[in-house]
């Protein structure tokens, strides 16, 4: 396994360089064991293509999304101002992130607080690399596999990004199958709005089970998603339904990395 090349903004700055794009890793991508694999897969693609990128590393901090959705606007704005100071000091212009929650917050909620960047979700970024001919993907291991895409709320409804993830899946020569509730009527995995971090309120079912059952109904080989939190929810759901051997849950970046045998 070759070493990942992950320059930090500080290192870049010290050597007088400016990256083309900042990769915002996010808390889940930095600390959650499953999500770290997504981060590594995405970096492998960036390295493979030779994208001139950097990360903030230890200077990155939570965007404040969970605090804001929970109602703690104060903590959110403290986080946002802190991050904006760091980003502006490095003169960051363009950001890519593997987390739709970071994507939404950076893109939509930071500008009013003084942080103006061009922000892309990694599905959009990968799509662009393909369009520019920098990244080529052939089906390989996924040829003919049935893949369904679970729309993350903060990518889909929140920001109307539905096509980029699907285009990537189609590049894999896989059969894209849609769940009953998809795209703008996609069902939440249950993690958003800081639900990820607490027990659900009293009810008769967990949201992720409802969603997993819907996905399993169409008997896919793979459930694809583009969010580390959806990843947790769907993986747990598949485990609880005892389908882990038949159905795997992967992030889009992982699918591309695997198809390219990276």
């Amino acid at each position: 396994m070759s070493e990942l090349k992950v320059p930090t903004m500080a290192e870049m700055m010290a050597s007088g360089q400016q990256p083309d794009v900042l990769f915002w890793v996010g808390c889940a991508g930095s600390f959650d064991d499953r999500a770290k694999k997504i981060t590594r897969a995405f970096v492998k693609i960036l390295n493979n293509v030779g994208v001139n990128f950097a990360v903030l590393g230890t200077e990155e901090s939570c965007t404040g999304d969970p605090a804001k959705r929970a109602g703690n606007e104060f903590l959110f704005q403290m986080q946002a101002m802190g991050n904006i100071q760091v980003l502006n000091a490095y003169e960051v212009k363009s950001i890519v992130t593997t987390c739709p929650h970071c994507f939404n917050t950076l893109k939509n909620e930071y500008p009013e607080l003084g942080g103006n960047y061009e922000v892309k979700h990694h599905s959009q970024f990968l799509q662009e690399l393909i369009n520019q001919g920098k990244l080529t993907v052939e089906g390989g291991v996924f040829k003919g596999k049935k893949i369904t895409f679970h729309d993350p709320c903060y990518l889909g409804r929140a920001n109307d990004v539905y096509e980029a993830p699907r285009n990537l899946i189609e590049k894999l020569d896989a059969e894209l199958v849609e769940m009953k509730r998809c795209k703008s009527s996609g069902l939440c995995c249950g993690a958003g709005g800081a639900q990820m971090f607490k027990e659900a309120e009293k009810g008769n079912k967990e949201v992720n089970i409802e969603r997993t059952e819907e996905a399993l109904e169409i008997q896919p080989n793979i459930i694809a998603t583009g969010c580390p939190f959806c990843m947790t929810m769907m993986t747990d759901g598949v485990k609880l339904k005892e389908k882990s051997t038949e159905v795997q849950v992967f992030d889009l970046a992982e699918l591309i990395a695997q198809a390219k045998d990276l």
Binding site: G29, S30, F31, E60, S61, C62, M196
Partner: peptide, 14 residues
């Protein structure tokens, strides 16, 4: 700087 109890200094360990 994260919802979990991990040190910010470990953010690049991945």
């Amino acid at each position: 700087g994260a919802p979990w109890q991990f040190a910010q200094a470990d953010r690049l360990n991945w």
